[in-house]
Simulated assay, not measured.
Amino acid sequence: MLKWNDIKKFAREGNPEPPRRLEKSVEEWKKELTGEQFAITRQKGTERPGSSDMCYRFDPGKYECVCCGELLFDANEKFESSSGWPSFTQPAEVNAIKYEQDNSMFMSRIEILCNVCDAHLGHVFPDGPAPSGLRYCVNAVSLQKVEEEKS
């Protein structure tokens, strides 16, 4: 289980090795993504708080990167943060997320990105629930929900 000190170390000293890499040109991303998806994932934008019903849905499933399809989060780690964005306590795998120091907007935060394609996802904060204490605050537009298969 990742904790805040692990996240700070990744941002400071380097991230886990990604499971694979996907790189595309700006033009390729613009062709594949909607305008809003491009603005958020490729230009580090932020959606309005509460603008997605994904914030309020807690049904089983997995959440993938909208850009490359890499598995990022599991619904079992999702919680109601009242922040206006979907929030998770842990990534699906330690190497699913990339962490970078973000000192923009007169704040010091840790940005989270897809470790495969560098899509901007949001930020992680040390104010989540126990036991990890983490809150991965994610733009819903950067995610695509994959429903659990029924056996």
Rank of each mutant, 00 (worst) to 15 (best):
M1P: 10
K3T: 13
K3Y: 13
N5D: 13
N5F: 03
K8H: 00
K8W: 00
K9N: 13
K9R: 15
F10E: 01
A11N: 05
R12S: 15
R12F: 01
G14H: 05
E17P: 03
E17R: 14
P18Q: 12
P18R: 07
P19L: 01
R20W: 04
R20V: 04
E23M: 11
E23T: 15
K24P: 01
E27R: 14
K31R: 15
E32H: 06
E32F: 02
E32G: 05
L33M: 10
L33K: 09
L33P: 08
T34H: 07
G35F: 08
E36D: 12
Q37C: 08
A39H: 09
I40N: 01
I40A: 04
Q43A: 12
Q43K: 14
Q43D: 12
Q43T: 14
K44P: 00
G45P: 03
E47K: 07
E47W: 07
R48S: 11
R48M: 06
P49I: 10
S51L: 08
S52K: 06
S52C: 08
D53Y: 07
M54Q: 09
M54R: 09
Y56A: 12
R57P: 00
D59H: 12
D59E: 14
G61D: 05
G61A: 13
Y63Q: 06
Y63S: 09
C65E: 00
C65W: 00
C67I: 09
C68L: 10
L72M: 07
L72Q: 05
F73V: 13
F73W: 08
D74G: 06
D74R: 13
N76T: 14
N76D: 14
E77T: 15
K78V: 08
K78F: 03
F79N: 05
E80I: 10
E80R: 14
S81A: 15
S83M: 07
G84N: 07
G84M: 04
P86H: 08
P91E: 05
A92C: 12
A92Q: 04
E93I: 00
E93R: 15
E93D: 13
N95W: 00
A96S: 14
A96K: 01
A96L: 03
I97K: 01
I97M: 05
K98I: 02
Q101G: 01
S104L: 10
S104E: 10
S104Y: 03
M105L: 15
F106H: 13
F106C: 06
M107G: 09
S108V: 14
I110W: 04
I110M: 07
E111T: 09
I112R: 01
L113E: 06
C114H: 04
N115K: 01
N115G: 03
V116R: 00
C117R: 03
D118C: 09
G122L: 07
F125P: 01
F125T: 10
F125K: 08
P126C: 11
G128W: 02
P129G: 10
A130I: 08
A130H: 08
P131V: 11
S132F: 02
L134R: 01
L134E: 02
R135I: 12
R135S: 11
R135P: 05
Y136W: 09
C137E: 05
N139I: 06
A140P: 00
V141S: 04
S142K: 08
L143N: 02
L143A: 09
V146A: 12
E148R: 13
E149M: 10
K150V: 14
S151A: 15
